[in-house]
């Protein structure tokens, strides 16, 4: 596949910039003063519970929904001002965006025609997404996995620098999710900007480089995935946890004894933990890395805020950014 070199505007053309983006439907504030950036060459997970405003935000970015206020730009321009939009931005919005009576291949040909892209590219993409044969059948009979793949192929028709994918893993089986992960990593390694939404942190945790988490239309967390996960720890099983904790403190490593008698050292350096234990003459029955529990973390960031489950009143106690940080610490990072 082609790389991004030689594109007009260079890598900068791939930066997504969301500034103070707000959308209200009547009285209802679906997206509320959202501000964040998405960097080229990285996969950014756009996370939030159902109804958080992810789809609305992405649709505003793509010029399909008109923001109440604020701006969303790609390479410095609003989507509608991109001279050849399909060649700058590819989007896969929902798995149902096909006419059931039209074949997948024809669906792509319709898009290609609108973007002034040669039909040859369509067949290339069908190969790339692994559906060349099935794509000649009518889309009405496609499985969920096929639809998602066809949706991805549609997003890639113009070989765009930026990809915007709304819940692409929805409905995929484990095999399909694995394929999707590899595929996205491959695209990011070509320098593309990838913004992928999901309502599950665990689903994308292994794939994304950055995360943007929203709840009730507001930002609660944005930054690199490592930052969210915090310092890695090591879980040690030994005969005397308190003694090992003391020995680790001498080596400048803090640790905490768990209820079950094991010890969590606040370092990812397991060799260090092993050496300290050896010098202290303590046996090691088990030693493994421990990461933050993403599920707990994610809930602590977004919990109790799903306005769709409430009575529709304004969310009381919705987390501000300050709250979010507290929540993060509470999640034992």
């Amino acid at each position: 596949m082609t790389t991004t070199t030689g594109r007009p505007g260079g890598a900068d053309s791939g930066r997504i910039e969301i500034t103070g983006l707000t959308k209200t439907f009547g009285q209802f504030v679906a997206v509320d003063g959202l501000t964040f950036g998405v960097e080229p060459g990285r996969i950014t997970g756009f996370l939030g519970p159902n109804g958080a405003g992810k789809t609305t935000t992405l649709r505003m970015l793509l010029g399909l929904v008109r923001p109440t206020s604020g701006t969303a730009t790609i390479g410095g321009r609003p989507y509608a001002d991109l001279p050849r939009p399909l060649e700058s931005v590819g989007a896969a919005l929902e798995a149902t965006n096909f006419h059931p009576g039209r074949s997948g291949r024809d669906h792509l040909r319709v898009l290609a025609a609108a973007g002034g892209i040669p039909d040859r590219r369509v067949d290339e993409l069908l190969e790339l997404t692994g559906i060349p044969a099935a794509a000649r059948k009518r889309a009405g009979g496609y499985s969920m996995g096929m639809r998602q793949r066809l949706g991805l192929a549609a997003a890639l028709v113009g070989d765009p620098q930026v990809l915007v994918l709304d819940e692409p893993a929805n409905g995929l089986d484990p095999e399909g999710i694995r394929w999707l992960r590899g595929f996205l990593k491959h695209l990011a390694s070509e320098g593309k900007t990838i913004l992928v939404s999901s309502h599950l942190l665990q689903e994308v945790a292994q794939t994304v480089d950055d995360v943007v988490i929203i709840a009730n239309g507001r930002l609660v967390q944005a930054g690199p995935m490592e930052e969210l996960e915090g310092t890695p720890g090591s879980l040690v099983q030994t005969s005397d946890a308190a003694a090992l904790a003391g020995a680790l403190r001498v080596a400048d490593v803090t640790s905490s004894v768990q209820e079950d008698g094991s010890l969590v050292a606040d370092t990812g350096d397991m060799r260090l933990v092993g050496d300290v234990a050896l010098r202290a003459g303590l046996p090691i029955y088990g030693l493994r890395p421990q990461r933050a529990d993403l599920e707990t973390l994610y809930f602590s960031l977004t919990e109790g805020t799903n306005r769709n489950l409430g009575d529709g009143a304004a969310p009381v106690g919705a987390p501000t950014e300050g709250d979010a940080v507290t929540g993060q610490e509470g999640a034992n990072l």
Binding site: G63, L64, P85, T96, N97, H99, P100, H107, V110, L111
Partner: peptide, 9 residues
């Protein structure tokens, strides 16, 4: 069939 999104994209 919600293809209008693709059309306007």
């Amino acid at each position: 069939h919600k293809t209008i999104s693709g059309t306007f994209l």
